[in-house]
Design a binder for these strands. Structure first.
Lengths: 220, 220
DNA sequence: TTATATTTTTAGTTTTACCTAAATTTTTAT
DNA sequence: ATAAAAATTTAGGTAAAACTAAAAATATAA
């Protein structure tokens, strides 16, 4: 893969994120990148010339197939570094992003693939977002109930069905909230209770009734 | 500390290296940075304005006290990343430099101090060069005989006193050469033989006679 | 010591990535 | 349908960091 400037990479990454909600407009990109519309137009011409972007003046833009490939490799670098910072250097989840913003632009393929191996090929970053593999492929993210989560496969809490004060009290007591990474360590047939573990806690047991109300994003 | 551009950091680092042999000249710096003399003069004006450099037009340059402090922190980042690449990601010693050249410009202090801790506060990089601490202090490097090296303190082979074919045969057999990192694991009083270990080998024993001929750079 | 060679600096360009202000195109609202 | 508003692009400018070519200062050698 060709190398791109830090600036180009930041544009590609941001377009990739915004285009999930439709075509991206000049103003939207300018706001997101804290830049000015005129600067956006200039860069769009450059990215179009490099075949990374489909774009007609006065209409929105979308990344080309090649542009998407580049975006996914940048996202891969970003999320692997986030995982490294949280898992190995004990950064808290809200500190990892800013540092990863800089590390992601170091573009040695060998570095990233070795880092991936060193980290044990993680499938999601500390925020629960999926990490693309070396080919830029992202595993399917599916929403599963905690009762259906395979053993020893970490997943991220994304929804709680029942919102009553009593369940929230219990979740709070167990330090479980939206975004928490959870792993099921054991299943007990007697009452279908589950032994689970989060990063902050030692393993503990929860009832089937509670587990039925917790849904998670799980990277297949 | 203020942040500097990648270009400024590369100049500072290179001046720091060259000034060990006296004042640095425009041509020497241009050759080292694969740049042109006119470009050097322009950057020297900038670094002087930022109080990092002492410099009179038409005479050589030296870093100011502040400039040296900055240089040592850049070197610290570079060497910690080299250590990380070799030790954790299994890069060979000749591959680490190029990647570290890029990683060294990510200037989060917290990142570097946490990395240092994660690596166990190493005192030398894979080439045996000393790693400055968080204050920019470098431990004294002293040349010691392998017989005098403290237990479990890695050091780098820098000299072999006897150069006869027979000793070289033995060193070759044990995969020891200039630049090899060696650690003494045990000392046996009976015959003063030493159990040592290198990165490539399991622990093995060598005679006092051989040890007496091996000298190492040891970071106190 | 004076002429020549070397080194260094100045002057003027280029490229990248940003900016402001003005012009143009598209959208929206009466 | 057309005027006003909003969005986008063009035109022209700035700063950083490189370059070439020419001028100036220093070093060296006859």
């Amino acid at each position: 893969m060709i190398n791109y400037t830090v600036s180009e990479e930041n544009y590609i990454k941001t377009i990739h994120r915004l285009q999930q909600y439709g075509t991206v407009t000049t103003n939207a990109l300018a706001a997101e990148l804290k830049s000015k519309p005129a600067s956006i137009t200039a860069m769009m011409k450059k990215l179009k010339a490099k075949k990374l972007l489909n774009y007609q003046p006065y209409y929105g833009f979308r990344l080309s197939a090649e542009g998407n490939k580049v975006a996914l490799l940048i996202i891969r670098r970003h999320r692997l570094w986030e995982y490294f910072l949280a898992e190995k250097l004990q950064f808290s989840w809200d500190e990892v992003h800013e540092v990863a913003e800089h590390l992601e632009h170091v573009s040695s393929k060998k570095l990233i693939d070795k880092l991936d191996e060193f980290l044990g090929f993680p499938t999601a970053d500390p925020h629960g977002d999926p990490i693309p593999d070396a080919q830029g492929k992202i595993k399917n993210i599916q929403k599963v109930c905690l009762t259906d989560l395979p053993l020893n496969k970490p997943a991220t809490v994304c929804q709680v069905a029942d919102q009553s004060p009593s369940i929230l009290e219990l979740l709070n007591h167990n330090q479980i909230k939206i975004g928490t990474r959870v792993e099921v360590k054991r299943k007990f047939d007697f009452d279908n209770s589950l032994e689970i573990k989060t990063k902050q806690t030692a393993p503990f047991t929860i009832s089937e009734q509670l587990a039925k109300n917790i849904f998670l994003n799980y990277a297949e």
